[in-house]
């Protein structure tokens, strides 16, 4: 199958309490961290900002975001996790998930989206840079119990479109 038709096999679906376990299974396979209930309730509360990605009807990846209120009442998006199961990488699933969230930000006039990433995770950093993210801060010893515990804060500022609907 050619690359194009593979992309056709990708679809996104919302997170609901009925399929929450899918995200849990993904996280258990992808990340060495056990996420607590707060993580999942934030993800559910973010509504369309959290999505599961399906490849030919199999759940293989997810982006989980949290909506944060800044001082002054504006909202920014924090990407808690973004991951795709190893066998299903490099077919554009991550791109599709991130693009979805970026487009949603633009639609809702959200000006800031950010995340944490390990300083040695070059693939990740390059991936986000492609989408216009930049390193805005370095936090030392952000992670505990993991080698290379430092991380960057990676942020994208989206210029709010002045057009009024």
């Amino acid at each position: 199958m050619g690359g194009k038709s593979r992309e056709m096999l990708i679809s996104l679906d919302s997170l609901r309490d009925k399929n929450l376990m899918q995200l849990k299974k993904l996280n258990a396979a992808l990340f060495p961290i056990h996420y607590n209930d707060k993580y999942y309730s934030d993800a559910l509360a973010s509504a369309d900002f959290t999505k599961l990605a399906y490849f030919s009807d199999i759940c293989v990846g997810a982006i989980a975001c949290k909506l944060e209120k800044k001082e002054g009442g504006s909202v920014r998006v924090y990407i808690m996790t973004l991951g795709v199961l190893a066998p299903y990488r490099n077919v554009g699933i991550g791109t599709k998930l991130l693009t979805h969230v970026l487009e949603l930000c633009a639609k809702q006039n959200i000006g800031e989206i950010y995340l944490h990433v390990q300083t040695n995770n070059e693939d990740a950093i390059n991936f986000y840079k492609k989408f216009g993210f930049e390193i805005t801060e370095t936090i030392h010893n952000y992670y505990t119990n993991i080698t290379s515990p430092d991380c960057y804060v990676v942020t994208k500022f989206i210029s709010c479109s002045p057009t009024k609907k």
């Binding site: 996280n27 258990a28 396979a29 992808l30 990340f31 060495p32 961290i33 056990h34 990846g61 996790t81 973004l82 991951g83 795709v84 199961l85 190893a86 990488r89 490099n90 554009g92 699933i93 991550g94 791109t95 995340l115 944490h116 990433v117 390990q118 995770n121 693939d123 990740a124 991936f127 986000y128 992670y143 993991i146 991380c151």
Partner: peptide, 16 residues
């Protein structure tokens, strides 16, 4: 014990 059993190398990450 609440530990996940995935063997992953990278974190916060993107596995695309």
């Amino acid at each position: 014990n609440g530990t996940a059993n995935g063997n992953v190398e990278k974190l916060e990450a993107l596995k695309i």
